[in-house]
């Protein structure tokens, strides 16, 4: 479903010169699977997901989503995905229903199918009471629900969640994770970025630990534990990042001079 190979995203930076926010990463994610990108802030998770959703363009590498290339067929890729991120906000001056219906129409759904689908989603996500509430009047949790409804309205095969639980209280976050889990059972390919360890542990089939634009290790939870002497995910996470930082410092010529 998702194929990423040697992906690089470089940004010009006045201080550091050209730097790679995403540095030669490769991974695959499949149907009925939740793939987690786990990493601290600034690891490059959001950049990868923005590239998957065609909002950003890769500097080099191959990215194929649902069989379409993100660089040359961005419009077709967008038909295949539902994208929820901290930076995909809800329109202030639109009600929940209007917002979801608007995106459904942009995905080319016809009115009858759309109405039935939105009813079903609103039912499932318990959004009936915010149906006619304007975006500006919604709480963070309500907004997140609307975003998810917007992302799944066209029933896409690929779902991309970028830090989807950030800013949500425990109750709402829990309900959201349940929804995502349910979507996996429907056979969706879900890619999920987070910096919260237990979310990844609880939800994801496979986990990639990212730091400074690189994937440090990747695999199922069990495989990760096996290959790293039975450490739990949190210990593994801290150790890998510390090792990577030390190696980075040793290789940095600027630091060596000091």
């Amino acid at each position: 479903m998702i194929h990423v190979e040697h992906l690089i995203k470089a940004y010009p930076d006045l201080e550091r010169g050209r730097f790679n926010a995403v540095d030669r990463i490769s991974f695959d994610a499949h149907e009925g699977e939740i793939y987690a990108l786990l990493g601290p802030n600034g690891a490059g998770k959001t950049t990868v997901l923005r590239i998957l959703s065609t909002v950003l363009q890769p500097t080099s590498g191959i990215v194929v989503v649902g069989g379409f290339d993100v660089v040359t067929q961005p419009e077709l890729v967008r038909h295949q995905i539902g994208y929820v991120s901290t930076s995909t906000a809800v329109y202030d001056r639109m009600t929940a229903w209007e917002m979801v219906a608007y995106f459904g129409r942009l995905y080319g759904m016809d009115e009858e199918e759309l109405d039935a689908r939105i009813e079903e989603i609103f039912d499932r996500l318990q959004m009936k009471e915010i149906r006619n509430v304007l975006g500006a009047k919604m709480s963070t949790g309500m907004k997140q629900k609307v975003s998810i409804a917007r992302a799944i309205v066209h029933d896409p095969p690929v779902l991309i969640f970028d830090e989807a639980t950030s800013g949500l209280d425990v109750l709402v976050a829990r309900a959201l994770l349940d929804t995502i889990s349910e979507l996996r059972h429907q056979g969706k390919c879900i890619i999920f970025s987070t910096h919260i360890m237990h979310e990844a542990e609880r939800l994801c089939d496979r986990i990639a630990i990212m730091h400074r634009g690189r994937i440090l290790t990747e695999g199922t939870l069990a495989k990760l534990r096996d290959s790293h002497a039975g450490e739990d995910l949190e210990d593994l996470f801290f150790r890998l990042i510390a090792e990577h930082d030390r190696a980075g410092e040793a290789n940095d010529p600027a630091k060596l001079k000091v």
Binding site: R50, S53, T54, V55, E75, R78, H79, I81, Y83, S85, S87, T88, A89, V90, Y91, D92, F103, L106, Y107, G108, S147, R150
Partner: peptide, 14 residues
């Protein structure tokens, strides 16, 4: 500013 542009850009509209 309101953060809705990214939402729109990830929709199929060119």
């Amino acid at each position: 500013e309101r953060g809705t542009l990214e939402t729109l850009l990830s929709s199929p509209a060119s």
